[in-house]
Structure formats: structure tokens, C-alpha cells
Amino acid sequence: MTTITSTIQSGVSRELRNHVSVGQTVRNSFSMAYRGLLKVRRTPEQLIDVTLQPIIFTVMFTFIFGGAIAGDVASYLPLLIPGILVQTVITTSVVTGVQLREDMDKGVFDRFKSLPIARIAPLAGALLADTVRYTIATTITFVVGFILGYRPEGGLGFVVLAGLLVIVCSWALSWIFAFFGVIARSASSVQGISFLVLFPLTFLSNAFVPSDTMPGWLQAFVNVNPVSHLVSAVRDLANVGTIGGDFWLALLGAAVVVAIFAPLFVRAYMRKA
């Protein structure tokens, strides 16, 4: 240990500001996102849900349901791939809440709170880093589908647009799980509550099967479920190359979720932070 050379500037001679500028908020958020990515690099097993899971689910569902639902595997793929994509990426968004809770329980969060940074930066950073996870999951699902014989008619441009739509909607949903992350007692309870919400949302939709074989009351739910609209929008984009009404409905649903849960989250979060 050598000596501390520089003299510390006294409290009164410093230039001080009591508010955080937008530019600083963005910079802080990117620093926190960088931290999120570093953590992923240290613990690559965190990526299992966005790498192995899409592979296993896509292959499994294709061969289990393919023959029964669409007659053969090849004609099931245009129906399934958009569905499995939406389900995988939305499931990934739960991690945001779980990790936020874990972080908040650790000592490092105290340091974040004691630094002169934007209060929202730890969350904004996490959300930013998660888009990387969504992108991985999206890419892998499309690639596995392609290997199994899926040839989206819409062309590459619309496939990319479909992927972006899914990422945006999952990002919107992650606000819900971030909210659970702040109000829940522990990381494992966040996981519990989140899956309770997620399973009905993803399975009571048209993600895996066409809704017309379901009983009327279930169809009613499936048809209003925003996940169904998202799946339909992705099918329109990838398989036909059109932007339909479902596209705008899915975006509207995402906007509504953010409009409700972002303020709820920020209020709960600020009370703790």
C-alpha cells in the first residue's frame, strides 16, 4: 500500500447539482447494462433459458404436435415457430424481475443507491441488457426453425421486423415482472408469481394450436389475449410479409402494459431505493 497522494477537495468548493440530467441517466443506464453483460459472461449458465430452451422446445413441439395438428411437420412449422418464439422470449422477460430482486437483496445495491446516479439506472440497465438476451433467443428460434425446414415467405426483412416486435413486447412485459421483483419478498417468490401469470397468458393463446377447436368461452379469452395478437402479428410478418391489425394491437397492448406497470414499478421502487 502506497500513500494517498492527492488532497481531497473540501465539500464546499465542489460544484454540486441536485438533479440528474437526461444525458447522465442514459450514460448511467448504459454502464449498468454493461455490468449486466459482464455478469452474463461470468456466469454463462444464465443463458440456458435463451439458448438451450428455444432449441429443445422448438424441436420437441414440432415433432410432438406437428403430425396431429397440421398433418405433417413441415406444414406445422409456419404455425409453431412464431408461437414458440413469442412464448420463449416472453418467458425470458421473467428473469428481469428475478435478477432485480436478487440484486436489491445484495450489498452492492446499497452502493448504487449511495452513488450520485440516476435512481432508475439499475433497472434501465437491466432492461437494456435483457434485450441482448431476447435477441439471442429470437435468433436461435428462427435458426432452429430454419434447420427443421421452416422457410418464412415474408423474407428476411419481415422476419427481422417480427423479431423486433417480439423483443419490444417482451421488453414491455418485463415491467410487470420488474414490479413483482420490487414488491416480492424473495427472488424465488418472484419466479413463482411470474409463472402463475405467464402460463395462462402463453398457453391460453393461439401460440401452439389454432383457437377454432377450443370451446367458445376459451376462444373468447384467447381472442382478447394480447399474446394471441402478438403471435398472429408475427405470423403475418414472417409468413406473409404483411403488417396487419394484429401488429398494431400487439404494440397497443405493449404500450398499455408499460403505461400501467412502469409508474407502479417506479413508485414501489423509489420507495425502496
Binding site: L16, R35, L38, K39, R42, G107, S114
Partner: peptide, 28 residues
């Protein structure tokens, strides 16, 4: 926010990120 620009806090339990290295922590 002004107070936070004037203080450093070292907690009872080390407030550093366990998953990162020492350099990465200080860089962050």
C-alpha cells in the same frame, strides 16, 4: 443527490458486485 456527491459509504457487508472481478467493480 448533492449529498451523494459528497459521501462514500462502506457497508457492514461489502457493497461490491460478487460476480465481477476487482478491476471490473472499480471500473463500473
Amino acid at each position: 443527490q448533492i449529498v451523494r456527491q459528497l459521501i462514500g459509504v462502506t457497508g457492514q457487508y461489502a457493497s461490491v458486485d460478487e460476480t465481477l472481478s476487482a478491476t471490473e467493480n472499480l471500473m463500473l
